[in-house]
Amino acid sequence: MLNWRTGAILLLVVALIALPQLPFGEKDLLTLLISLFILAALSSSWNILGGFVGHINLGHGAFFGIGSLVTRSLWLDQGWHILAALAVGGVVAAIVALIVGAPALRLRGTYFAIGTLALAEAMRLTVGNVLPRVSRLPGPELRVYDIEPRYYLALVVLALIVGVSVWLSRSRIGLGMMAVREDEEAARSLGVNVFLHSMLAFVLSAFFAGLAGGAFAFFHVGYYPNYTFGPVWTFDAVIVTYVGGVGTVAGPLLGAIFFVLIRDVLAANLVNIHLIIFGILFIAIVLLLPGGFVELLKRRGQRLIPAGASTEH
């Protein structure tokens, strides 16, 4: 079972790496995949705090925005190498999380959610006021725009966040985080430092959201700096994570695939009404499949595999 799965994943990774060199790896497919990778990375980063620790961060877009803003200005305006700019973007997002985290993580449940939402809104408004000009690549640079490095950068960012998620889901620290999610008091009595675990997850989550933002900044040809701070990024990440399966590594990935494909397929064929259909479909999934796609797969799996094979609750 494990070997079969590892083999399939390896095959997929190789296929994704080779894709731009293949004849059908055309620009529209790469563009679609880049948005998919960025959304999956953003959702996975949300999942670290929202899924593993269980704190609903509704201001996640702010960290995506910080990452894109810092990366873009270092890379485009200061002429840094994109990898250096990207790293700094992630680090700045993490530092902001560290500063904000201390007061924010004192808030409980819903108040944390609303507080982060307001924080992101405040940042979006500030950035809109301070940097009202659209950030776009100059004409000469656009004419030599190459999609491949963008593709690989987004892929690497996604691979990083998935790798860290896998590690977290198996490590002591990750287990501590999940203990906080299940029952804070119980976790505390077991000697888990609730604040430290929450903070670590918050900072990691922000760091990777920043990287995803940086990948977006590298990819996108022209947008307003406050666009990446918008609530839509947070909402998309939350939907994707829940539809896929919150608190699991595969969930955000499956969710992102569903989200991007459905949107794309419906948008192409049913101009106008696709948003209604998407909304209904989405609600149906939330109501009928609370554990997301991952649970569906697991249920199927349990029928095939003898009981006890699944270790998760």
Binding site: E26, K27, D28, T31, H220, Y223, D264, N272
Partner: peptide, 22 residues
């Protein structure tokens, strides 16, 4: 061929890439 971008500039970009490739 007219595609809807939902007033979202990112969607507009991906639509235009679709139109070019497809």
């Amino acid at each position: 061929t007219i595609l809807d971008d939902e007033s979202d500039p990112v969607k507009a970009v991906s639509n235009l890439e679709d139109l070019y490739s497809n």
